[in-house]
């Protein structure tokens, strides 16, 4: 199997941002909680590689710590989707054609029918803004995605011969689902998880941009953008850098997801959307 250029670029970008986030746990060039108004809105320089923001904070340090927030929120939201969605999808596939299957799938459609951002705003209006509630808001919409993907993939596995054999040997549906079906759909799920992870990064940025994500003083890319927006005429780099960071991170994850899919299932190469 050939490792595609996409996969390499994707891994490169993703690892870079993961490393940034990791390094920020032990070291950042500057303390992000230190506000020095006198140093504000400086352009990139030797001292501040990416310049400073409106409070005189070092933008590189903010991006590093912000990566942590974005990655944590998106990753846990994917976890929420997997933990609740995959069993639901496996259950629906095991009960295919029954009323229970119909209810699960219609329930999924219904969640999809709700305008996601409006619901996210409502959730934060009820529980208050914050990273945890951003996770819930994004995670809820990941559940039907994983349920649907898991069900679709599981349905095709159910028709395979070794499943028939397992059934004949008297194993129950739940048993078969987790023991035989799940390992066989893992690839599909991993690829979907990568896609949802990148969508989660975008969603977190959007929520933080409207003020509903992680709260200050915890840095977040979306809020950096929102706060910098009015400074764009004064110091364009303050608004352009966090935006580019989001683009690169999401791009990296998408390339990674696509490359991974090609790698795992080369027949689909060049065919995938």
């Amino acid at each position: 199997m050939r490792v595609g250029a996409n996969l390499i670029a994707g891994i490169g970008l993703s690892v870079f941002f993961l490393a940034l986030a990791g390094v920020s746990l032990v070291w950042t060039p500057y303390d992000v909680t230190l506000l020095v108004v006198g140093d504000r809105l400086q352009p990139p320089s030797q001292a501040h590689w990416l310049g400073t923001d409106h409070f005189g904070r070092d933008i590189l340090s903010m991006i590093m710590v912000g990566a942590r927030t974005s990655i944590a929120v998106a990753l846990i939201a994917v976890g929420v989707g997997v933990i609740f969605g995959v069993p639901l999808g496996l259950f629906a596939a095991a009960m295919r054609g029954s009323l229970a299957d119909e209810i699960v799938m219609r329930g999924n459609d219904l969640v999809f029918a709700f305008p996601a951002l409006v619901i996210a705003i409502l959730i934060t209006a009820i529980f208050g803004p914050g990273a945890v509630n951003a996770i819930i808001a994004i995670g809820i919409f990941n559940i039907p995605v994983f349920a649907r993907v898991a069900r679709g993939a599981a349905l095709s596995v159910w028709t395979r011969e070794f499943i028939m054999a397992a059934r004949l040997s008297g194993k129950g549906s739940a048993h078969i689902s987790f023991e035989h079906i799940l390992p066989n759909i893992a690839n599909t799920l991993i690829v979907q998880a990568t896609i949802q992870f990148s969508l989660g990064i975008l969603a977190e940025a959007g929520l933080a941009y409207v003020g509903l994500g992680a709260q200050p003083p915890q840095p977040s890319w979306g809020r950096m953008l929102a706060e910098a927006q009015t400074m764009i005429a004064l110091a364009p780099h303050v608004a352009i850098i966090p935006g580019l960071t989001i683009v690169l991170m999401v791009l990296g994850l998408n390339l990674f997801g696509d490359g991974l899919r090609d790698y795992l299932d080369p027949r689909l190469r060049e065919r995938r959307p």
Partner: peptide, 27 residues
């Protein structure tokens, strides 16, 4: 919002920690 963040930093400098809670008007 900006003022609050600055005040939080100034209070931290004398040893008072704050937990910022952003709110809408109705709340």
């Amino acid at each position: 919002r900006r003022g609050g963040e600055l005040i939080a930093a100034q209070l931290r400098a004398v040893g008072i920690d704050t937990r910022i809670v952003n709110m809408e008007w109705s709340q």
